[in-house]
Structures are given as C-alpha cells and as structure tokens.
C-alpha cells in the first residue's frame, strides 16, 4: 500500500482523482501558487467586488492600519476551492468552511494546502483540511471542506 505523502515527507504527487476509491487517506492535494498579485486582486475587484482601497492599494491599506493591501477573504476561499477541483475534477464541493485568522497579504507569496482527513466510500465523500500560509509558514486561513466524488 502506498505511504501517504503526509506521513512519508514526500512532496505530493501531482495527480488527479476521478472516483472515491482513488482517494488515499492522508494524501496531500497537489497545490498551486495562488495569484495574490495586486493586478489579480484589482481584476477581482473590478468584476466581482471587494475593489476598495484596502484590497487594491498598498498606500490606502496602510492608512487603514494594515501592513499593505490584503486579499479579500472570498478570494482566499476561492483559491482553496480551485485546489480541490484541480485535484478532483469530477468532485462536487458540498461544504467549505474557512476561518480568516490573519490577512493574506497582496504581492506576498502564499502556499495553499489540502490534506485528506476522512473518506466515506459508502457516501462517496471526503473531508479535507485546508489552509493558506505565508512564506514564514504562518497560517493565515484554515478550515475544512467536504467533497463528493463518483463511486
């Protein structure tokens, strides 16, 4: 039986899963670097919302007491959802809960992670611990997601 990446210390293998039996307990989802650039946050602000100064201007954010512009929480949640979809293209995310512990800073590299913590093959569901951390490995956003996969 393969050793899940969580326990082996290996980087997660960039693979996709299609059915519930493909999923391994403890496996780490392939990640991607979320685009937290000012340009992308501005684009989001223009078309989706959250386009005010604290999100789109480092100067304005500093006036409001932040170290710089911050990424809207709805984008952070979206990055985590996209990670699950890339890993399991046929999955349906039925629930996702995110706690905004600290701001995700614009123009600062961040890492998103997901780890499978439970599998229910009868229901076809998986539970995934999700998080976003910065270069100092400080957790900025964390939570859980439930996804349903074909059997």
């Amino acid at each position: 039986m393969p050793i899940p990446a969580l326990f082996s210390g290996r980087d997660p293998v960039a693979r996709t899963v299609n059915v519930i039996t493909d999923v391994e307990f403890g496996e780490e989802l392939p990640s991607f670097e979320p685009d937290v650039s000012l340009d992308n946050v501005k684009l989001h602000g223009k078309f989706v919302g959250w386009g005010t100064g604290r999100f789109t201007s480092h100067e304005q954010a500093k006036k409001e007491g932040f170290p710089g512009a911050i990424v809207p929480g709805v984008m952070s949640q979206g990055f985590l959802g996209a990670m699950i979809h890339r890993w399991a293209p046929k999955a349906v995310i039925t629930a996702i809960d995110t706690v905004f512990r600290a701001p995700v800073m614009v123009d600062n590299p961040h890492k998103i992670t997901g780890i499978v913590t439970d599998i229910d093959e009868d229901e076809g569901t998986v539970e995934i611990d999700i998080s976003i951390s910065n270069e100092k490995e400080e957790t900025r956003v964390f939570g859980t997601a439930t996804a349903k996969l074909p059997k």
């Binding site: 991607f32 979320p34 685009d35 992308n40 946050v41 684009l43 989001h44 078309f47 989706v48 984008m75 979206g78 990055f79 959802g81 996209a82 990670m83 979809h85 890339r86 293209p89």
Partner: peptide, 11 residues
Amino acid sequence: AMYGQCCGETD
C-alpha cells in the same frame, strides 16, 4: 467566470 479565473479555476 471572472471569479473562477481570478481564483485559479481551470475547468
């Protein structure tokens, strides 16, 4: 669609 693109969706 723009929300999906900005968040990194590829599907």
